[in-house]
Design a protein around this nucleic acid. Sequence first.
DNA 1: GGGTGATAGATGCAAATGCATCTAAATTGG
DNA 2: CCAATTTAGATGCATTTGCATCTATCACCC
Lengths: 153, 153
Amino acid sequence: MAAVQQESATRLAADTWESLFRAQVAVMRKLQAGAAFKSIPLNEYDVLFTLSQCPSGWLRLNELNDQILLSQSSLSRMVERLEKRGLVERTTAPEDGRGVLLSLTEAGRALQREVGLSHVRDIAGIVKPALTPAEQRELIRLTDKLRDSVRTR
Amino acid sequence: MAAVQQESATRLAADTWESLFRAQVAVMRKLQAGAAFKSIPLNEYDVLFTLSQCPSGWLRLNELNDQILLSQSSLSRMVERLEKRGLVERTTAPEDGRGVLLSLTEAGRALQREVGLSHVRDIAGIVKPALTPAEQRELIRLTDKLRDSVRTR
DNA sequence: GGGTGATAGATGCAAATGCATCTAAATTGG
DNA sequence: CCAATTTAGATGCATTTGCATCTATCACCC
């Protein structure tokens, strides 16, 4: 009996992830086809966006890496490319000679804002007709809770 | 007033996607670090899994492509690799000479089962402590609803 | 039925990715 | 205070990815 409950709890957890993942794939496909990402790939936009959200304006490379689904080496090279294109600025961290601090340049901030507007429009076009505001708030609550749990263990 | 409500509804939709996406990234990071994916990358497992779920056992390449977050050409080549490794079988579709039908070989099915077990364990270890069963069911309802809405428009 | 356009996959090629490894800076332990 | 370990990020290299394009089959329509 306990084994059965254990089994179905595990099954439920797997179904939860499966559903979350498939929804993410479906939305992502739509977004990538949308207008916002002709100018810049989603991964790169995500870097610009994350930097734009950062309160101090500067973020450590490894902290950025936690937010982004990319290996350390790939992120290192992507940031190198973004710097070469003048969208991002790099400095060695003042308190840690190994570390690298990143921030948006003015051009990077401008591009993020521009793409971001278009991106938000695309998202709204997908999410608003799918879920009521109350459902959206509940979904935020649940996914935030899930993420917090992952980060703190 | 209407403009303001419009504005905040758009904002809410963007926040919803943001939260869903970040949760997905956080869980995915954990999963990729887990034991299940030493033997096979997640993308490839996803192909095996999707084929294993298919009722008839056969799936068209383009239908598979809808489920998987990969370009058509990348999927084409990945399937080529999987075939070369003896995990997947290809046939030309009987009713459409352009189409390709896919199914798991016995080896592919065995690998999917093996990795799947380990994968499900990893997922349960992440999801169960994060959300109650009721919350998980609600999350499934919302993400299914979102995905259905995306697919039908 | 034959031409016209659409659709399913494959392929050449340049760019991006990840693994393993390397360097340099910081932390730890004696 | 120095050796040993850990951590942050960069780099060589093989693999994977996506874009553009190509081929082959199918669908449409006059």
